[in-house]
């Protein structure tokens, strides 16, 4: 037995991450664009080429620290195929943030992303933060089909923030979630003022202007 000193029963010490701000986030997008892979990369730091298709929905949690605040993501990962579209409202209802994912090697998935954005903007309140993630950027050299500029233009027009990601290499995955968390925190202050957050999210598009770096250290 270890005869080490222990805190009294009941766990007197403050719970780390206690009082974390909860944030419901939903992943939407066409079949096979990498929704589950993005979530798993973020939560477990893992990647599997043969990640099985999501049936129904999956739920994951992960806590991140942003500007000294703990944000606990409740992540709903949904099935992508059109056929299961009717289930999606159950998962995006009440979400503070959504990541609409497309595959940069598939124009069809980008078109699908448009309709998701449209639906979200119609069905959810103006305060839901929407990120547009162009996944599989590791394949850009060989098979890119959606130009970054095109996606950025679209994002700008629709008040989203856009990032190209790779769940496989991990590129921009942390950044994606961190930025969402930052936005949530920012939103807390401005939410009552702005009906649409287009201004704030548009800021994000000019990457330099946004103090993203601040979040990574500390």
């Amino acid at each position: 037995m270890s005869g080490l000193q222990r805190p009294p029963p009941g766990g007197g010490s403050g719970r780390p991450g206690g009082g974390a701000q909860q944030m419901k986030l939903v992943l939407l997008g066409d079949q096979g664009v990498g929704k589950s892979s993005l979530a798993l990369r973020f939560v477990r730091g893992d990647f599997r080429e043969d990640q099985e298709a999501t049936i129904g929905a999956a739920f994951l949690t992960q806590t991140v620290n942003v500007q000294g605040k703990n944000i606990k993501f409740d992540i709903w990962d949904t099935a992508g195929q059109e056929r299961y579209h009717s289930l999606a409202p159950m998962y995006y209802r009440g979400a503070q943030a959504a990541i609409v994912v497309y595959d940069i090697t598939s124009t069809h998935s980008f078109e699908q992303a448009h309709s998701w954005v449209k639906e979200l903007q119609k069905e959810t309140g103006p305060d839901v933060i929407i990120a547009l993630a162009g996944n599989k950027v590791d394949m850009a050299a060989e098979t890119r089909a959606v130009m970054k500029e095109e996606a950025e233009k679209y994002a700008m027009e629709h008040g989203l923030f856009h990032l190209e990601t790779s769940a496989k290499t991990g590129y921009n995955v942390q950044n994606l979630f961190q930025t969402l968390a930052q936005e949530i925190i920012r939103n807390d202050y401005v939410v009552t003022q702005t009906r649409h957050r287009i201004v704030t999210t548009a800021d994000l598009l000019g990457e330099q202007s946004y103090p993203r770096r601040r979040t990574c250290c500390s």
Binding site: Q31, G32, D50, E52, A53, Q81, H108
Partner: peptide, 12 residues
């Protein structure tokens, strides 16, 4: 396309 995507990740 749908089938291709799912076949490569079924019970691998």
């Amino acid at each position: 396309g749908l089938i291709e995507k799912d076949v490569t990740r079924t019970d691998r």
